[in-house]
């Protein structure tokens, strides 16, 4: 184990795979000399000459070219600086990358990682703060990865790069400086395997990305009030580890889902549907969702604080079930 930040762990995952496989390359806006807008890819351009490419501001061509390169044998890690910018390359993602295999009758594979970052809390306002994961989970053929810890960040990045399918790997701004123990050497976290971030017996809280940490803080506070909360981090929304969620519900019989994304058609709705369809008999109480409201992300720190789910809102939702 080695102490590493989340940002360093992402870089370590990319480095591990670039050393292992010469077909892996990294491209995107300012990922090379500048080291990435948040410093995540710092130094890789010197470590891997010719394999870390600064592109123009050209999201359509970044993802479109990654599709072409992946279809003929490379393994691009293509960065879109903010998840909010994926609208500019959406056709390349949802009509090209993910449909090629199916449309071609299974005779193509497109192993590309779209690396990007989401989330609020830094007063970056409505076009640099969103959580768009639900969009991506609605696209068959795509996998959606959202690590919450440094170890998961490394292991999931490596697994995403080795996967033969298009994967969107969504980092979170709030987590970049988060430290933690990360396995040294080759490390992979399988896609589709949830992690119990805190075991508990009275209520299941499902949360991902930054919200895992807010859920853990809430669980800590709830423990003092005698409520034992289990925090489940799915880590990947597609594929979703339904079994882990249902197994937890079999124990706790209560479900609270927390996500930073806006409420309507958020991925929390999907998890609630899984619980209702496949775990109805396990539930002793209505399902609760703690989410952002259905508004754009506001700029003012005062407004943004009101917008974001936090420990207090999670505690309140849990207590309403008891």
């Amino acid at each position: 184990m080695k102490k590493m930040t989340y940002a360093e762990a992402i870089r370590d995952g990319i480095r591990q795979e670039m050393k292992r496989d010469s077909a892996v390359y990294l491209c995107g806006e300012d990922v090379g000399k500048f080291g990435g807008c948040f410093g995540v890819t710092a130094g890789l351009v010197d470590e891997f000459p010719g394999r870390v490419l600064d592109t123009p501001i050209t999201e359509t061509a970044i993802i479109g070219s990654a599709v072409g390169a992946a279809a003929v044998g490379l393994r691009p890690v293509a960065e879109i600086m903010f998840v909010d910018f994926t609208g500019v390359c959406m056709d390349e993602l949802f009509n090209q990358a993910v449909k090629m295999r199916y449309m071609f009758g299974g005779k193509a594979k497109v192993p590309l990682v779209l690396k990007t970052i989401c989330g609020g809390g830094v007063a970056a306002a409505a076009q640099h703060s969103q959580c768009m994961e639900a969009w991506f989970t609605h696209i068959p053929g795509l996998k959606t990865v959202m690590p919450a810890t440094p170890a998961d960040a490394k292991g999931l990045m490596a697994a995403a790069i080795r996967d033969d399918n298009p994967v969107i790997y969504i980092e979170h701004k709030q987590l970049l400086g988060l430290g933690g123990d990360v396995p040294e050497g080759e490390y992979l976290v399988p896609l589709g395997k949830a992690d119990i971030k805190r075991p508990g017996t009275d209520v299941t809280i499902v949360a991902w990305s930054w919200m895992v940490h807010r859920a853990l803080a809430a669980a800590e506070a709830l423990a003092k009030d005698g409520i034992s909360a289990e925090v489940i981090d799915p880590r990947t929304l597609v594929p979703l580890d339904k079994d882990a969620i249902l197994a937890s519900l079999a124990k706790t019989h209560k479900l609270v889902i927390v996500h930073e994304a806006v409420r309507t058609s958020g991925f929390g709705g999907e998890i609630a549907a899984v619980a209702a369809e496949e775990g109805f008999d396990l539930l002793d109480a209505p399902i609760k969702r703690v989410t952002a409201p259905d508004t754009p992300v506001p700029f003012s720190p005062v407004l943004e604080k009101a917008f974001l789910p936090d420990e207090g809102k999670i505690i309140q939702a849990v207590k309403e079930l008891f």
Partner: peptide
């Protein structure tokens, strides 16, 4: 999708060069 092949061809060409 009209025009979608253009960046895909660029990616294939990149792979040839790479």
């Amino acid at each position: 999708i009209v025009g979608a092949g253009q960046p895909i061809a660029v990616g294939a060409a990149f792979a040839c060069k790479y």
